[in-house]
Amino acid sequence: MVNDFPLKGKTVLVTRNKTQAKSFRQKVEQLGGKAVLASLITFHRALPNDLVEQVRIDLAIPGWLVFTSVNGADFFFSYLKENQLIVPGHKKIAAVGEKTARRLESYNVLVDVMPHDYIAEQLADALKQHAEPSERISVIKGNLSRDVIKKELTPLGFVVKEWVVYETVPDEDGIKELKNAANQHSFDFVTFTSSSTVHTFMHVLGEGIKKWPAHQTACISIGPLTRDALLSYGITSYMPDTFTIDGMLDLMCRMSRKEDRI
């Protein structure tokens, strides 16, 4: 990305989880912009310790571990560490995208399959090409994650086990921050990195966002599911070609440069 401060003078609202938002803010600031943080969701562990023996048995069965998010990887490996479990070498690994793959590498786990587009449908298609029906598919996910892989693969004869390792809940402190920010700032960009942030945002501000002048405030969605969540409220948004934070930043930079040329 060209270091010419293309976001200078721009204010960006970042609605993702507080921990994950820090790097987003740093990148906005490196590009000359101002980032306002309002963490709308947070995550709690959901997998109880009384299921540890079932997890142990599942790990022993040849097949695939499928990770649909960075959060899933973090909560799963924290659970394994707490219960003194490891991922055996015979397990094959699939990840929904590049950041999830990199996080798995930090746990010394190499990814065997990753789709070109970072969405569940593409991950399911990749598994259809690389997995055998005799291999169990164990999906590591959050409580709000869709069951696309199970729906796509079960009719083909695969045994699909879903492990819900974390749950997504509203961040009450962040919701207060959003209300304050909405009263104190005007935003050039409002960024959404998940459907859950969209729903929480709309629950907090209701129809108020529709009154924001479209020529002054642009909504940026990380991918098609987030875009569709906004559309369900009648709100259009811009979506990057690459469904990542860097893709969103690149899109905002291109939009800002285009404004400067007008």
Rank of each mutant, 00 (worst) to 15 (best):
E53C: 11
D173Y: 12
H203S: 15
L80D: 01
S39Y: 13
I245Q: 00
N71F: 03
F67Q: 09
I220R: 02
E121C: 00
H130F: 15
I57W: 05
Y238H: 11
R16M: 01
H203Q: 13
S69V: 09
L251N: 06
R25F: 02
A218R: 12
D125C: 13
D246Y: 08
Y166T: 04
L47I: 05
P170V: 02
S221F: 02
D173W: 13
E98K: 13
H215W: 09
V66C: 03
V160L: 14
I245G: 05
K99G: 13
H203V: 13
S39W: 06
A38Q: 12
E177P: 08
S186P: 00
V198Y: 02
I119G: 02
I57C: 15
G97S: 09
L156C: 08
K258L: 14
I93Y: 05
K211A: 08
G157P: 03
P155R: 09
V113A: 05
N108L: 10
Q20F: 02
S138C: 11
R25N: 08
A46W: 10
K92F: 12
D260N: 15
V28E: 04
A38G: 07
I220C: 08
N17H: 13
P88T: 05
T100Y: 11
E162C: 00
M252Q: 09
V87N: 04
S196C: 08
H90I: 14
C253G: 11
G247A: 04
H199G: 03
A214T: 09
D147N: 03
V111T: 07
N108H: 15
T19C: 07
A94P: 02
L80R: 00
I140R: 00
G63F: 02
G208M: 08
R261F: 12
I41P: 05
R16V: 07
N180T: 08
I57A: 11
G208E: 12
L231S: 14
T226H: 01
D241W: 04
V148C: 01
V204F: 03
P155V: 13
Y118A: 06
P155L: 06
E121Y: 13
N183W: 15
R146Q: 14
D125N: 10
T68P: 03
M239P: 05
R45C: 10
A101S: 13
M252T: 02
